[in-house]
């Protein structure tokens, strides 16, 4: 009872996780109005007025070189400089987001920077969209409605069987809370064991989830660990609110660790966590951005090929 009051409802955690699971490209506005360097402030003002927008990126062969916001227009207006080219008034060195980043990174970016919008770029660094808080709110509403519909369609269905493998569960983890790091893993381990999953697979899941739990409490500013289980596979995802990993390849190198003395005194920080997760997973993905967060996804198949069982 106490726990239920301290922790947010499982359903609200699940919604958060769903949102975090989306990619920025699924949420952003794809129809972007942009101008080139030789356009004037008046051009931008017209674009803003005609399309009810408040920020216009400046591009040079599809690369973002600056952004003009309502504020810049006001400054130019005040100085009677509306016929100046945009490069004189725009804000350069724009913080952009990558289209394949998880949405959680965008949420962190909005918290970290005071910008109201972020241009979104593809792998070639070309402008492909723009994201505002409005996009995130819309995605939230969309996901909430979908969840509600799902709940409604489940309601009145056959009662949940206790031997069913289907499970979606989200755990919240806090920085340095070693006390609760491990709770999720042992609950999931028990769940799988009770349903007769082979010990080898249970151990793979336990190792992956425990390492991810420890990473969340030891290295992140807090985050969540979610499990999505069905008869075919177990999907474990970890999302955190930063600080992010500067060099993911280095972090994946066995033996590399940024752990402090205290973490080491807890028996961790040997630089084996992420490599361990990868080793036991059939599919593994990691994404990270400094200041925004880290996302790790590990999938362990339940229906393995026979040749794997040696």
């Amino acid at each position: 009872m106490d726990n239920a009051q301290k922790e947010p409802l499982q359903s609200s955690l699940r919604v958060q996780e769903l949102i975090y699971g989306l990619k920025i490209s699924e949420v952003m506005t794809k129809k972007v109005f942009a101008v080139t360097r030789n356009c004037t402030m008046r051009d931008v003002q017209t674009i803003m007025k005609n399309n009810s927008i408040t920020g216009v990126p400046v591009v040079d062969s599809r690369r973002v070189v600056g952004i003009v916001s309502m504020n810049d227009i006001m400054n130019a207006l005040e100085k009677g400089a509306m016929d100046d080219v945009v490069t004189l008034w725009m804000v350069g060195e724009v913080q952009t987001l990558a289209e394949d980043m998880p949405l959680s990174f965008a949420i962190s970016a909005f918290n970290k920077f005071s910008f109201r919008r972020f241009p979104v770029v593809n792998k070639k660094n070309e402008l492909v969209g723009i994201i505002t808080f409005r996009n995130i709110n819309m995605a939230l509403i969309r996901e909430l409605s979908r969840q509600l519909r799902e709940m409604e369609s489940l309601h009145g269905g056959p009662p949940e069987r206790s031997d069913s493998l289907d499970l979606v569960k989200v755990y919240q983890l806090h920085r340095y809370d070693f006390e609760n790091g491990g709770k999720a893993s042992s609950e999931i381990k028990k769940f799988l064991k009770e349903r007769g999953i082979p010990p080898k697979i249970v151990r793979q899941v336990a190792v992956a989830s425990y390492e991810l739990e420890i990473n969340l409490v030891a290295h992140s500013n807090g985050g969540m660990l979610s499990f999505d289980i069905n008869a075919d596979r177990i999907k474990i995802s970890s999302h955190d609110r930063g600080p992010g990993i500067a060099d993911v390849e280095l972090a994946m190198t066995e033996g590399f660790s940024t752990a402090n003395e205290w973490i080491r005194s807890q028996g961790f920080g040997a630089g084996m966590g992420l490599p361990n997760v990868k080793r036991v997973s059939d599919e593994f993905a990691i994404q990270s951005a400094v200041g925004m967060g880290t996302m790790v996804r590990a999938v362990i198949n339940l229906k393995k090929e026979k040749k794997d069982e040696h």
Binding site: G181, G182, S185, S186, R203, V207, F268
Partner: peptide
């Protein structure tokens, strides 16, 4: 020589 709760958690997870 690692004597704390995490050791038990790991022992339990690995069997």
């Amino acid at each position: 020589i690692q004597a704390h709760k995490n050791t038990v958690a790991v022992a339990s997870l690995v069997g």
